[in-house]
Design a protein around this nucleic acid. Structure first.
Length: 271
DNA sequence: CTGTAGACCTGGAGGC
DNA sequence: TGCCTCCAGGTCTACA
């Protein structure tokens, strides 16, 4: 679920909680990707939520004395609920606010996500400080990508999914972007021409921007009690479409595994 | 330093 | 229905 657009939408959706103060925290399961700080309940008590930010797929929730660094992993979800909402098996954390009877609830069946507390600048946190550029930032451009890839023997799909290079390009968007750019996912990064890279940069930006718009379009029902609707699959050109005809040339879409992840591409449209 | 396999964990789908 | 295997939108860490 959480691709960059969903994280962005989640972050925006949490704005109603700004300037509210914490009454209590209930943690039902401390073992996420990294254990939640056992002192978090007493640390966060009475603190006010001052700001919300996103860096890559991390949500940075700034409180009075520090910042919660939240990652949704593969299956995480944040919802604003009230105390009347029924508890799900995998609702691991509730941050209960004093005002308006609002609760920020973290659900994560696979527990690949994380909730970390830091009192320092979150941007100097070791998980954040070495991250690559934001895909929609002007810093992500042809020259940047060329410099990063000119000595890389890695295949291009793995390169663009490397968050130290550019953040937010997940498994789906990697396949989709390479399709739009006409590049086969297993091509060696350093052998791709600058001209092709400039098309790839544009493709990545377009795919992500488009997905944010689509994510944004579901914002109204995003926090529904049963807000389980997926909204990306309809527009996939190659992802999950193995053996189905390419929309452009009608040849069947290929699937292969790269770095233990499924990749999809059209052998005719991508070279 | 570079690139890849393994690890974390639950649940759903499909085969038998 | 039950059991087994495989697969899943992420990404850090260990190792070659």
């Amino acid at each position: 679920m959480p691709e960059l657009p969903e994280v962005e939408v989640t972050c925006l959706g949490l704005k109603p909680l700004l300037s509210l103060s914490v009454k209590q925290i209930v943690i039902r399961n401390y073992s996420l990707r990294w254990p939640i700080n056992p002192k978090l309940p007493q640390i966060l008590k009475k603190q006010t939520l001052l700001n919300l930010d996103r860096r890559g797929k991390y949500i940075l929730a700034k409180f009075s004395d520090g910042t919660l660094i939240i990652h949704l992993g593969m299956s995480g979800r944040l919802c604003i609920v009230s105390d009347r909402d029924l508890l799900n098996k995998h609702d691991h954390v509730d941050i209960i606010f004093k005002e308006k009877n609002l609760i920020l609830r973290y659900r994560d069946p696979r527990r690949f996500g994380s909730i970390l507390w830091t009192e320092k600048d979150p941007y100097s946190h070791k998980l954040i400080k070495n991250m690559g550029v934001e895909p929609l930032d002007d810093k992500f451009n042809t020259e940047y990508l060329y410099q990063k890839l000119k000595n890389k023997n890695q295949c291009i799909k793995n390169s663009i999914m490397d968050s130290h290079l550019v953040v937010g390009v997940g498994n789906i968007y990697a396949s989709e972007s390479l399709y739009y750019a006409g590049i086969r996912p297993y091509r060696v990064s350093k052998k791709i021409t600058k001209k092709k890279l400039s098309i790839l940069v544009k493709s990545i930006k377009d795919v992500i921007r488009n997905a944010i718009v689509r994510g944004g379009s579901t914002m109204n029902d995003f926090f529904d009690v049963n807000g389980e609707n997926g909204y990306f699959q309809n527009e996939h050109k190659v992802y999950g479409r193995e053996n189905q005809p390419c929309y452009q040339c009608k040849f069947p879409i290929n699937q292969l595994r790269l770095g233990q992840r499924s990749s999809f591409f059209c052998k005719k449209c991508q070279r």
